[in-house]
């Protein structure tokens, strides 16, 4: 912890003299100048100028709220339908304005899929999805931050080529490699496990690329000064780069979490027993070719969406928390 403080302090101290990662702009120039010159009162005035006027703020909020309501209108359809007990009523009303209204709301659909009477152990599937999600996210964060950092600040050659190669791998559509991968997993006896549902997604080209772009924002000078202090490559990574990129970490947690949560095709191929079956696969069975159980499907979708929403709400405060640390970066 002491080490961390030292590095960050030295980063701030050494920084103004060095080049910054940004293209020098006029604003940055003046930012540096004013920092020392400005009196308290002047700062206050500017702060005031930056804050939008209160009445404009309310108007903006109102407009944003209106837009948000318009955007989530289709989801109101989903929610109201999940409260209708009769699946034939749902299909009959879908497509007219009646779809938005519920005359006699009932939680039967939710009870049917989650309650003790459910024909399949949905609670178990829910737990399985949670385990797979947690594992995948944890692995992804660890693997992709390390890779991105090594590819940005490592001193070996062909870094840019490797990065482009990794992005190229993202092009390969999952549908193209799924069958060979399935045959492979059957051969190495990894089917029907949690591990096989997590491993293929941990080294995600897209999140390696994302961390790469965000790490770029941290001036190389910080790493350099830390190095003078005697910090190793690994130490600089997890004491400077990781803590300075909480917004990116949170973003990847949410995005990868939701991707893993909604994985469908892959678990469909490698999962057999109920022990490790995720919710998506279980829900798909409401969709048999001849008969669609709309009532349960809609309720299950709402249930499916909740954990990701909670994940988002819990983690989004770190978007704000990181503002304090951003000052270090100039």
């Amino acid at each position: 912890m002491v080490m961390k403080k030292n590095i960050q302090e030295s980063a701030i101290n050494k920084n103004p003299g060095k080049e910054s990662a940004f293209q020098e702009s006029a604003f940055q120039e003046s930012a540096r100048r004013t920092k020392g010159l400005l009196k308290h009162q002047m700062m206050h005035q500017i702060k005031h100028q930056l804050q939008p006027h209160k009445r404009i703020g309310y108007l903006k909020t109102f407009l944003l709220l209106l837009l948000a309501l318009l955007i989530i209108m289709p989801l109101a359809l989903l929610f109201s339908s999940s409260l209708k007990d009769d699946r034939f009523q749902i299909t009959a009303e879908l497509g007219s304005l009646k779809a938005f209204f519920v005359t006699n709301p009932s939680f039967n659909n939710y009870i049917e899929i989650l309650g003790p009477q459910a024909p399949v152990p949905m609670a178990r599937f829910f737990l399985n999805s949670c385990i797979v999600m947690a594992g995948t996210v944890a692995g992804t964060l660890l693997v992709s931050t390390m890779t991105a950092y090594a590819l940005l600040r490592g001193k070996f050659r062909f870094k840019r080529v490797i990065m482009t190669g990794i992005i190229a791998l993202y092009i390969i559509p999952a549908e193209a490699i799924m069958l060979p991968l399935l045959f492979l997993s059957v051969k190495i006896h990894l089917t029907d496990t949690y591990i096989i549902q997590m491993l293929p997604f941990m080294a995600s080209p897209i999140y390696i690329f994302l961390f790469h772009q965000f790490f770029k924002e941290i001036p190389a000078s910080i790493a350099e000064s830390a190095q003078i202090e005697g910090a190793s490559f690994w130490k600089i990574f997890h004491l400077v780069y990781v803590p300075l990129n909480v917004p990116a970490l949170v973003t990847v947690t949410i995005l990868q979490g939701m991707e893993s949560w909604n994985q469908y095709l892959w678990p469909l191929l490698v999962v057999r027993s109920e022990n490790v079956r995720p919710m998506t696969v279980a829900i798909a069975s409401f969709f048999s070719t001849s008969d669609i159980y709309w009532d349960r499907l809609f309720a299950a979708s709402v249930v499916m969406m909740m954990p990701i929403l909670v994940l988002y709400l819990v983690f989004q405060k770190y978007f704000i928390a990181s503002i304090a640390s951003s000052a270090v970066k100039v």
Binding site: L179, R272, S288
Partner: peptide, 14 residues
């Protein structure tokens, strides 16, 4: 051994 309807033949082939 349950295999979901949508990918049944693929699982069978594997």
């Amino acid at each position: 051994r349950y295999a979901p309807h949508d990918m049944y033949h693929e699982q069978l082939a594997a």
